[in-house]
Amino acid sequence: MDKGISAFRPGGPPAEDILAALKAILSHDELRLSERNRRFLSFVVNQTVAGHSERIKAYAIGVDVFGRDEAFDPTLDPIVRIEATRLRSALTAYYDATGARDRIRIAIPPGSYVPTFAWAIPLAEDEADTPPAGAQPARPTRSETIIVHDQSPRSDAEAALRGELFSDALVRLLSKAQFKVHVVPSVERRAALDAIRELFTHPGEAYSLDLAVRPMLERRRYSWRFGDLRNGKVLSSDFRDYVIATAPCFDLIDAVADEAAQAVMDALPD
């Protein structure tokens, strides 16, 4: 089982923790889901954990979860699309309230039925006066500096906007994780730019985090590359492709940023 989840997202929560999180969330009455949609959530999580995420398509869900026959046509019978939207909404509401302290977040990004799993970022101290049972202790301030450089093409306003949102989310997450974070500024901000250049020249414990959102027809590629400035070694690099959605996609960008931040933390020694 571990093999499947490792293939899905290296550095993510282990399979047994994901399945325990699934069991826990399904036991909550506060999760506003019908029995059928609870089976839907179980199906996509279990298939992904087992390494079969390629099987998660509208047709398979329609047949296996919603009892449709082999003639099922998702364009005429949009049950899966509708219920997936209701499922996303229920998960969002759950993690905004009852599940705010859950260690693992299960999400189904728009445009896909394949779930993502991420460690929750600890709440700020003023929001969490008592740590939840089993929670990781808060990390002390880290000595590493991370220089975030958004390389999304400025010629594409929409990709540039997504890049800014991706960068903002990452900076927030890395700052919460106690890193010293710098963002490569525009050329007009010369003093800040010179300070960053000095870090590039004498990196000490500084690392680079280059990110970008690049357009290709109807798709957008969110990529990140984390490297050690002292030797140029790439410590972690990955990307996620999404079909562009006309709906607001803040949650999706936050989820990608969460994965990238987790990958950065996994790439560094504790």
Binding site: L76, D77, P78, I82, T85, T92, A247, D251
Partner: peptide, 20 residues
């Protein structure tokens, strides 16, 4: 709320499917 437009779209899809 980014979830609300998605739910509105799901609602519209349910209405259209019911009519179909």
């Amino acid at each position: 709320d980014p979830r609300l437009p998605e739910l509105c779209e799901a609602y519209e899809a349910a209405c259209e499917a019911a009519a179909y």
